[in-house]
Design a protein around this nucleic acid. Structure first.
Lengths: 120, 120
DNA sequence: ACCCTATTTCGACGATCGTGGAAGGACCGT
DNA sequence: ACGGTCCTTCCACGATCGTCGAAATAGGGT
């Protein structure tokens, strides 16, 4: 991910209403959530939420798909991976010793029960 | 990290000049970089850069320390860890199966040579 | 005390953002 | 074809942001 796209992603999430909307859509993976439902659950007018969802979609954080009357939004998890990787690699670039404590933070998330498989 | 602080961090990085400044300071760990040097290297007026550095500092991404005439800025790597963790945990909350591909992205950074230790 | 350097703070400007009312467009049921 | 639902686009408003000249503050050297 280049800087120009990373800035779009960061800016999209750096707004309370949009961050909440994104978290809400994320929680409803993989079913997705119609735009009106997002607006209703967060108590925001539909047109305002539509603008926010468009910004999140343009940043690649969510995707939209029409289902009859509704337009269902789904989270693009790969973009989350990319932006997190962008942040971490920005620290590690040429200095792997700074990266290690960052990686340690994520591993317990992958294996909450026990360790021992190939990755963790 | 709560949402309100996460938004400050995201907003601080969601700006080209500030993102470049932060990456520059990050590259000069652990020595740090004086404010004027950051402004000179990025070809930005000192007062403009001072404002940007203050925003980064208020978000907790960098810290400042006076050294005689200069004010040296250093990166706060722990905040990077926290914001990356915030992004990833937002996806994994209640859904660990979505987290695994995210974690896999970071592990090669931790062990570029070979695998086999306790964590990775 | 004075000047010089380094940095921040103040103030003002145009630009962009967040919001929401109103209108427009897409789709379905009858 | 018509009304109803769902969502987006258009438009305008106040608010915040990014920028930078000018002034103010802090520190060191002579």
């Amino acid at each position: 991910m280049e800087s120009t796209n990373a800035i779009d992603v960061l800016a999209a999430l750096a707004q309370p209403t949009r961050l909440e909307a994104f978290r809400l859509v994320m929680q409803h993976e993989p079913h997705g959530l119609p735009a009106g439902e997002v607006a209703r659950l967060l108590d925001v007018p539909q047109n305002t939420m539509s603008t926010h969802l468009a910004i999140l979609a343009r940043a690649g954080l969510i995707s939209s798909e029409r289902q009859s009357r509704s337009i269902v939004y789904r989270a693009e998890i790969d973009t989350v991976r990319q932006i997190a990787s962008f942040l971490v690699n920005d620290c590690c670039g040429g200095r792997p010793e700074l990266c290690e404590p960052l990686v340690a933070e994520f591993t317990p998330c992958c294996t909450p029960k026990e360790a021992g498989n190939a990755c963790c």
